[in-house]
Design a protein around this nucleic acid. Structure first.
Length: 921
DNA sequence: CGTGCCTGCCC
DNA sequence: ATTCTGC
DNA sequence: GCAGAATGGGCAGGCACG
């Protein structure tokens, strides 16, 4: 059945009309009627299929958002248009409004119209589908004994019962932390009764010598096993290295009362990696253990605490099921595998919502609305899942199987692949218990959002391996920390952390690092994983510098160099080789370790010109920039981005590229990461050759005075660059040591400077509901410029950064007074940009940007530069409110056009040949 | 087979 | 990309 | 100052759908 529903969803999605310009004349709501039907009735939904009804009305649809019209006309909006934003409004209408977050003080939703459904209904629906009886369900789950989980999780859902607002309102009000609160609640309770029948304390001191420590302890600690454990038991066979440790099996006899999975608590004081785990040695790690860990992490704000929590989970994995460490890490980071393998899920928000809706009996609009209310799809999915009962409980998820399933998802391609993926996701989703649903969905969305990411994970890995070493002299010891002072132990952790982070930065591949870590221990890592041509390393990044003065305060008395900051794409070029460079095996990686080799066949073809005869292997750090070979001119980033991305053929390349080389990270097999920049650069110049328009060294100048820097900055801008990169030349700060400091360079751009860059006064004409951290208030806005000629407000860009939390709270509240039901007919925008809430043009905000670009999605200055393209902003950010300006006094379309044309890159384009003032080429 | 949506990845 | 925030 | 999480424009690629 799930399948069916899915299909139906597809149909539902209407198409959006491609309106050219949507200036609306809305007024006609007629179309709405139709639309109504769709969304509103959940059941009906399936039938829906509206064909494209709305062509014109798309615009209208939005309106409803404000929505009062009870019926969700709005949602009808066709397509899901990008992100939920569009539908949101409408959809909400559908939903049980009460529930909503009432939270928001402001009540974004302002649609108090009689919602079609009352919250309770929602649930009802679900249950229907599932068909069933909750009772029957009663879970057959293994753990049922303990769980009352259903109820517990759902704590949220209760909202429905309560009067709409009250229950939560108090909390919701608090924006920032509120998110956590729910979790915390759930978590804390857990402190739970673990039954640890303890007995022996782990040997006070590490049982150092004995390799078998863990096992022994494990045995000792066992009491009775839970029934379910038995069932799963089988698997334990494999395991390579770990045999040593757990040979268990014997266990059967031994009894051990396991912690119920639903009560797994990595935050338990004096956490014992075996006794406090919820699975036994050799068993596959239940996904619930990881989900519980993530819950605990999410409920925590102190990073060191998060690291503690995760490390405890890791300790158990290391002690019990080390083979699951790798999949655990991947699930924590939302990675399928090393980036350079190019694995992609191909599923994101929209399709996920279809999947969730399809198996919980909800319409796409309902799911979307629920996600908006909660500010996040994961939570909505968990609620939906909890309301559902299964006749026959699927096998519980295991960490390893889940990770494998995600990789399988990525492998599905071709026709009907989306439906296949959705089905597969539904199968996983249905097997979720408790918070598993939330984290499964978030994983699929690609963001866990628990406040812990790669750096903290590496720290946790260091802590875990320091405390419960998988290898080395203390292998088998469950808690090394017990035998030493906290200072001493901390030193050990720091040492592990540095080694692990360094290794990972130079060899960012958990497939290689994790097995080596388990087998040889942290200290031995560098001997097994090192910088290797063919494996991309983490690139050095830069911090923005707000002014020339900041450069001098940062580098104090150190010597530094300034290089032009080219506006292209980072390219890390690897050429392997022993006796001689193996050019056929050269690869080019992106800043995020993606493999871009097939994107640059032209660049690879001319490698021979770059490498002097002294080079046998190398890793170069460069920027690939679009280049006009005829006029010898650097072209804008936007031009570069039109290049084919996959399997390009050198002959077909239309956009030529000049590669600007600025660093050398490995030469002839030797890593230069611990060499200062001055030395790396010297080697670069000695062993590589420039070739005009193809290979050039980044323009550099070792500046010593502020004026010199300022001049060089201006020169770089005239040379079509974004500004400068500033780097230490000597000493440790000049090393390419990402593990110690990933943003060791400074970047100085004109638009960072006061008075530099473009500043625009734009009108706020719409707002989008925030998600995640910004749930419950506006998280972004739609801005427009004013076009006096057409008496229109033309969309210029969306904006979502530059606001303090306070700003967002304030705007969320203050803008309520400008909320309107529908966009004015003098608003010009693209349907896909429609905000959740439309606003009357009243507020003017100053925004800053790096550039202006010709836009397919915005309408500012439409027709002035290009017949059907408007102008938008690159890297827009909020600066301040212009209370002194009225909407009509905002920057005009004509001014925007002038600003666009005034850009060096544009002028150069039009006057390419005459360009020489700058000298440059 | 063309169009448009969705996703992922550049910045 | 830019920006803000808790630690 | 770090690490993380909010958010931006815009493009190619891949698939769905008519």
């Amino acid at each position: 059945m799930s399948q069916k529903s899915i299909t139906s969803f597809f149909k539902i999605t209407p198409k959006k009309e491609s309106d050219g310009i949507v200036n609306h004349q809305k007024e006609d709501k007629s179309s709405e009627d139709k639309s109504l039907t769709e969304e509103t009735s959940p059941p009906a939904t399936a039938t829906k299929r509206s064909s494209k009804r709305l062509r014109s009305d798309s615009v209208e649809k939005e309106l409803p958002s404000a929505s009062r019209s009870p019926s969700p006309v709005t949602s009808a909006k066709k397509k899901t248009v990008k992100r939920q934003r569009i539908e949101s409004s409408g959809s909400e209408a559908d939903l049980p409004k009460g529930s909503d977050e009432a939270t928001i003080p402001v009540k974004l939703e302002r649609n108090d119209s009689p919602k079609t459904y009352s919250s309770p209904k929602t649930k009802r629906n679900k249950s229907k589908l599932t068909k069933t009886n909750q009772e029957s369900v009663k879970n057959i789950e293994k753990n049922e004994s303990f769980n009352g989980y259903e109820s517990s999780n759902e704590s949220n859902s209760p909202k429905e019962n309560k009067s709409p607002k009250q229950s939560k309102s108090p909390k919701s009000v608090k924006t920032p932390k509120k998110q956590k609160s729910p979790k915390e609640q759930s978590v804390s309770p857990n402190e739970i009764p673990k039954i640890k029948t303890e007995k022996k304390s782990p040997s006070p001191v590490k049982s150092v010598t004995k390799t078998k420590g863990p096992m022994e302890k494990f045995m000792e600690s066992n009491n009775m096993m839970r029934s379910f454990v038995k069932s799963e038991k089988i698997v334990s066979t494999q395991d390579d290295e770990k045999d040593v440790k757990h040979t268990n099996e014997a266990n059967d006899t031994i009894q051990h009362t396991l912690v119920p999975e639903a009560e797994y608590n990595p935050g338990k004081t004096k956490y014992h990696p075996i006794k406090d785990a919820c699975w036994t040695s050799g068993q596959p790690v239940p996904y619930l253990a990881l989900a519980r860990t993530l819950e605990a992490v999410e409920a925590t704000s102190a990073r060191h605490k998060m690291v503690d929590l995760l490390s405890n989970y890791f300790r158990s994995v290391i002690a019990l099921t080390p083979q699951d460490l790798l999949p655990s890490i991947y699930l924590c980071l939302n990675q399928l595998g090393p980036a350079y393998l190019g694995l992609e899920l191909g599923i994101a928000e929209t399709y996920l919502m279809k999947a969730v809706g399809g198996c919980t009996g909800r319409s796409l609009a309902q799911v979307r609305a629920a996600a908006q209310r909660l500010g996040e799809l994961g939570a909505a999915a968990q609620q939906a899942r909890a309301a559902q009962r299964m006749l026959c409980a699927p096998a519980p998820l295991q960490v390893r199987k889940l990770h494998a399933a995600l990789k399988d998802l990525a492998a599905i391609t071709g026709q009907a692949s989306v439906n296949k993926k959705i089905s597969k996701i539904q199968a996983l989703f249905v097997a979720c218990r408790h918070s598993e649903a939330k984290y499964l969905i978030r994983s699929l969305e690609g963001k866990l959002r628990v406040g812990l990411a790669e750096q903290s994970l590496l720290q946790a890995l260091a802590l875990a391996t320091a405390r419960t070493p998988p290898a080395g002299p203390h292998a088998g010891c469950l808690d090394v920390a017990e035998g030493m002072s906290s200072d001493d132990f901390k030193a050990v952790v720091d040492e592990h952390a540095l080694v692990i982070k360094t290794t990972y930065c130079e060899c960012p591949n958990y497939e290689l690092v994790v097995p080596a870590l388990l087998q040889h221990g942290a200290r031995e890592l560098p001997r097994h994983c090192r910088l290797t041509p063919g494996i991309p390393l983490k690139p050095m990044l830069a911090h923005p510098a707000r002014g020339v003065h900041e450069i001098f305060s940062r580098f104090e008395n150190e010597k530094f160099t300034c290089e032009w900051k080219y506006d292209g794409e980072r390219a890390q070029i690897h050429v392997p080789g022993e006796e001689a460079p193996r050019l056929a095996h050269a690869r080019i990686f992106s800043r995020n370790q993606e493999d871009n080799t097939t994107k640059y066949p032209d660049v690879l073809a001319r490698l021979p010109a770059l490498l002097k005869s002294t080079v046998t292997s190398c890793v170069l750090d460069c920027e690939a920039v679009a280049y006009d070979t005829v006029n010898k001119q650097i072209l804008p980033f936007q031009v570069l981005s039109t290049r084919k991305r996959k399997d390009a053929s050198a002959a077909e390349v239309r956009v030529q590229v000049c590669v600007f080389v600025f660093d050398l990270l490995l030469l002839n097999g030797r890593s230069l990461c611990r060499e200062p920049l001055a030395e790396r650069r010297r080697l670069l110049h000695d062993h590589f050759a420039e070739s005009a328009g193809e290979w050039e060294f980044a323009r550099a100048q070792d500046c010593s005075g502020a004026e010199e820097v300022q001049q060089f900055l201006e020169q770089s801008v005239r040379g079509s660059c974004e500004g400068l990169m500033v780097k230490a030349l000597h000493g440790e700060r000049a090393h390419y040591d990402i593990a110690r400091r990933s943003r060791n360079w400074l970047k100085l751009k004109k638009d960072y400077l006061e008075g530099g860059g473009d500043s625009i006064d734009a009108v706020v004409i719409g707002a989008y509901r925030g998600r995640g951290r910004r749930a419950g208030r506006f998280g972004g806005f739609l801005l427009a410029c004013y076009d006096p000629a057409g008496e229109q407000y033309q969309s210029l860009c969306k904006i979502g950064t530059g606001f303090s939390d306070q700003d967002l709270d304030t705007f969320t509240e203050q803008l309520q007074q400008h909320v309107i039901d529908a966009p004015r007919n003098y608003y010009s925008y693209e349907a896909s940009q429609a905000p959740d809430v439309w606003l009357a043009a009243a507020c003017v905000w100053e925004v800053r940007c790096a550039d202006l670009s010709l836009s397919p999605a915005h309408r500012a200055a439409l027709g002035l530069i290009d017949r059907d393209k408007g102008v938008s902003l690159r890297f827009p950010r909020f600066v301040r409110v212009r209370e002194d300006k009225r909407a009509e006094e905002a920057t005009s379309g004509e001014q925007i056009a002038r600003m666009y044309l005034a850009q060096d890159s544009v002028r150069n384009q039009h006057t390419a040949h005459k360009m020489d003032d700058d000298d440059f080429y």
